[in-house]
Design a protein around this nucleic acid. Structure first.
Length: 212
DNA sequence: AATCCATCCAACCGCGGCAGG
DNA sequence: GCCTGCCGCGGTTGGATGGAT
């Protein structure tokens, strides 16, 4: 088993406080020089991670709600393992937290339901491939901006085809995955299964806004 | 009470993108 | 165009914890 080059150890309260003080004073930047400035015996990346995932004031701790879980599932179907993008849609949640929650809870649940292939790390690819976004395959997207465009296009697409979606009947995964080979197949998201789910998938707003 | 085992999640690593020189 | 440093991301690891035996 590979031995990590730097020993894993938890952050003490004092370390946290030093980090908080420094970031509040100097902002979220210059991470590489932060350890020297604060006297912390951590690397800059470690400090950054600690701040972004746990110390930042707007971090939301605690269990994920059902609506959050639904949203994660949907976004993962669209984006695959783009955890930072997914987390961006969940106010107060971090990519690490979403990723861990996915791996420890949701993935297991979907496997039990027969809705997720454990050998595939990217459920989203299957959905994207069978969508009409054939020229915007998410798996090939190189940055968040492009991915954002894809999401927005997909949102438009979903809206366009909303009235084509049947009422509440779960889709047959196998059939639909096979159908992914067909470039003429329409995206068939079961929106009715998630009546409260907001699909306003722009990156700059949160997921509750488009009803007014 | 002791041990084993599975699970969770905080933390680390490696890599790619980007900006500045 | 190349190099270097910084930043951010996704994948992985390993310690902590709790349940089962």
């Amino acid at each position: 088993m590979r031995r990590p080059s730097s020993e894993k150890r938890s952050w003490s309260k004092e370390e946290d406080q030093r980090l908080i003080d420094h970031v509040q004073k100097h902002g979220e930047r210059c991470w590489p020089s932060l350890p020297r400035a604060t006297g912390l015996r951590r690397c800059g990346k470690s400090c950054r991670l600690r701040w972004l995932n746990y110390l930042k004031p707007d971090i939301k701790r605690g269990d994920f709600g059902e609506d959050e879980e639904d949203l994660i599932i949907r976004l993962h179907a669209l984006l695959g393992n783009r955890w930072s993008l997914i987390a961006g849609r969940l106010p107060g949640r971090t990519d690490n937290e979403v990723k861990n929650y996915w791996n420890s809870h949701i993935r297991k649940k979907l496997i039990q339901m027969g809705r997720h292939d454990p050998n595939s790390n990217n459920v989203g690819d299957r959905y994207i491939k069978r969508s009409t976004l054939n020229s915007n395959n998410i798996a090939n997207q190189k940055d968040d901006h492009e991915a954002s465009n894809v999401v927005n296009n997909l949102h438009n697409n979903v809206t366009t085809h909303k009235n084509l979606i049947d009422d509440g009947e779960e889709e047959d995964d196998d059939d639909n995955h096979q159908a992914s080979e067909s470039s003429t197949s329409k995206p068939k998201f079961n929106l009715n299964a998630f009546p409260d789910l907001n699909l306003d998938l722009t990156l700059t707003t949160t997921y509750h806004s488009n009803n007014n």
